[in-house]
Design a protein around this nucleic acid. Structure first.
Length: 447
RNA sequence: GGCCCCAUCGUCUAGCGGUCUAGGACAUCAGGUUUUCAGCCUGAUUACCUGGGUUCGAGUCCCAGUGGGGUCACCA
């Protein structure tokens, strides 16, 4: 009972301020979208502020245009920020903070060669050889105390998490190029920006004791901290990685996923409401958001559910909205008039906008029918169908008049005209396609 | 390997000691609507990791084991 998970409530006293702090190293990661969404909801649920902060303190990893693309993508999802900061424009703040820490004996200058992590290797050296050398220049490292217990209450896990300081290494705070590391910058900025809640990925949990120390030495009110679960790949069961998995939000958008579907899907990967409701728009999510809904176990990213959400949101669209959304996915020369007739026929059938091609491609371009698909009586079927089309007679009468099996007759007709067994309703399709074009396609097969 | 987190259907999850013969959604399967595929409607299959405690009573609390994940940089 003593350690039962406690309900977390937002302190009403101070204003809720959260931030999303990506580094501009490329496109927006699906996990990043989720972190941003939760941070946004956490703030907006309490009429607080959502801050976008670009963490560009590693000059080597900068990617041209990444910040702009990040902003564009966030906007597409409706995640509007109230304030915007760029760390590289705040350099003096960090060096002053580093100086202060050295001055107060909580950090020291180090002149060792930078060591970079190697694949599959780990270092056991916690204490830096320079910590008592009294250098007056170089990189700045944290002077981790001995025998202290470092702990905080994690508002995602709803429990106390702690470390012995004896397991924490003397982390670098200021690099020799004068730029801060994450460890310093995050504390300086969160304090300066009066961030009330830090919501970040689980991968940050192991370095939290470092941050706890920096926050403590810097003084001021430390934000609450919560670590989100990692999204796992359905295939590997490992954390989603850009090397193995498709993880970029922009990529999903290009493949015909709708922002509201992506958002709704990602909402439920690591969070659930008490009543288990699943359909949420962004504003509904903000309204119903509750920190106690956070999940502690890592979820797997299974595309099936995303596809279902996407199909659902496509069906909710009006034909006019769909016409616009389908723009990048239809043939370039497709007329709006024809598109307007086609859309109602495929709306219930596509799961992604990119499915348009496979369901409606035949409207715009003749598909060669694989002869193997036809039934054995296809010639008879097609001859009679052609006759009816040429005469302008109702096709529904043909099977009755000729004693054909209804299903077989229409299937052969379907294949002849569309080249596929899976298509929109064939009568409507013929109307949209034009009876003359339909007749022509049948003739070609009969020849 | 050290440190840390985690553990309910295949997947996302509800469940915060008795109402759990465990509920919902996706997926799967079957039936209905139907000229195909979708969509829609019905129904079905499937889960509390293991072992100890605590308790009148444990999916729910505690411990251990096992399993999974993360992390060990002058990267974030």
């Amino acid at each position: 009972m003593l350690n039962a998970k406690l309900d977390v409530k937002i302190e009403a006293m101070s204003k809720v301020r959260t931030r999303f702090a990506p580094s501009p190293t490329g496109f927006l990661h699906i996990g990043g979208l989720r972190t941003a969404l939760y941070a946004y909801a956490l703030a907006k649920h309490d009429k607080g502020d959502f801050i976008l902060r670009i963490e560009d303190t590693d000059q080597k990893r900068q990617v041209e245009g990444a910040t702009e693309s990040l902003k564009e993508t966030l906007k597409k999802f409706g995640l509007a920020w109230d304030e915007f900061y760029t760390q590289s424009e705040r350099l003096s703040l960090y060096s002053e903070a580093a100086k202060k820490l050295v001055g107060e004996g909580h950090a020291f200058y180090c002149q060792c060669k930078p060591r970079n992590a190697k694949e599959g290797e780990f270092s056991n050296k916690l204490r830096d050889p320079c910590r008592d050398k009294g250098y007056t220049m170089g990189a700045v490292r944290l002077k981790v105390p001995e025998g202290e217990t470092l702990s905080y209450f994690d508002f995602v896990h709803r429990k106390e998490i702690s470390w012995s300081s004896d397991t924490v290494y003397d982390a670098t705070l200021l690099k020799s190029d004068g730029f801060p590391t994450y460890h310093l910058a995050v504390a300086v900025d969160d304090l300066d920006m009066k961030v009330s809640h830090i919501l970040r990925g689980h991968d940050w949990l192991p370095s939290t004791p470092i941050h706890l120390l920096v926050f403590k030495y810097l003084g001021g009110v430390r934000p609450e901290i919560g670590h989100l679960t990692d999204i796992l790949s359905a295939e590997t069961g490992k954390k989603l990685s850009k090397r193995r998995d498709s993880v970029f939000v922009e990529q999903f958008l290009e493949n015909g996923y709708l922002p509201e579907a992506l958002l709704n899907f990602v909402m439920l990967l690591g969070w659930a409401p008490k009543d288990n409701r699943e359909l949420f728009t962004l504003s509904e999510f903000v309204e119903h958001f509750d920190m106690n809904g956070f999940q502690e176990a890592n979820p797997r990213f299974l595309i099936d559910k995303l596809d279902w959400f996407n199909g659902y949101y496509i069906r909710q669209k009006t034909d006019e909205e769909l016409l616009k959304l389908l723009g990048p996915f239809v043939p370039k020369d497709a007329s709006e008039e024809k598109l307007k007739k086609v859309i109602p026929l495929i709306k219930d059938r596509i799961k992604k906008l990119s499915d348009f091609e496979s369901f409606a491609g035949f409207f715009f371009e003749e598909r060669s029918a694989d002869k193997k698909l036809f039934g054995k009586d296809y010639k008879k079927h097609l001859e009679k169908a052609l006759e009816a089309i040429e005469k302008g007679v109702l096709l529904d009468q043909v099977p009755k008049d000729n004693n054909f099996k209804v299903g077989d007759f229409f299937m052969d007709l379907r294949i002849a005209i569309t080249g596929s067994k899976f298509t929109p309703p064939i009568n409507e399709s013929i109307e949209v396609l034009g009876r003359e074009e339909a007749a022509e396609r049948i003739r070609k097969i009969l020849d």
